[in-house]
Amino acid sequence: MRVCDVVELLSAKVLTPGLDSNREVAFAFSSDLMSDVLTRDYENTILITGLSNIQAIRTAEMSDIGQVVIGRNKMVSQEMIDLAEGNDIFLLQSEYSLFRISGLLYKEGIKPLF
């Protein structure tokens, strides 16, 4: 599915409106532990996390993850948004819990990595 469809599905707020929302998302990984995120290889993946700090975005950058959704409407800093934009990382914020986000995406055919 496309990122713009994910936005709608999760009633999410787009924090990087300047980036292309037609890109494809096929896989998802959900974690608040960045070292865990750093152990995998990713392609067309969205990271679902409740960790709203600069390291979540840095981790996406190092892992070549192009999409990040922050759950539970956790506050996102301008620094995070700027870093995401600079690295072409589509950043979303959703009021839904990580469990609900994961469930909704799974139901729509987004696959787990393993």
Binding site: M34, S35, N53, Q55, A56
Partner: peptide
């Protein structure tokens, strides 16, 4: 709290 420190580094 920063998402590290789980002994994986």
């Amino acid at each position: 709290e920063m998402g590290f420190g789980a002994g994986m580094g």
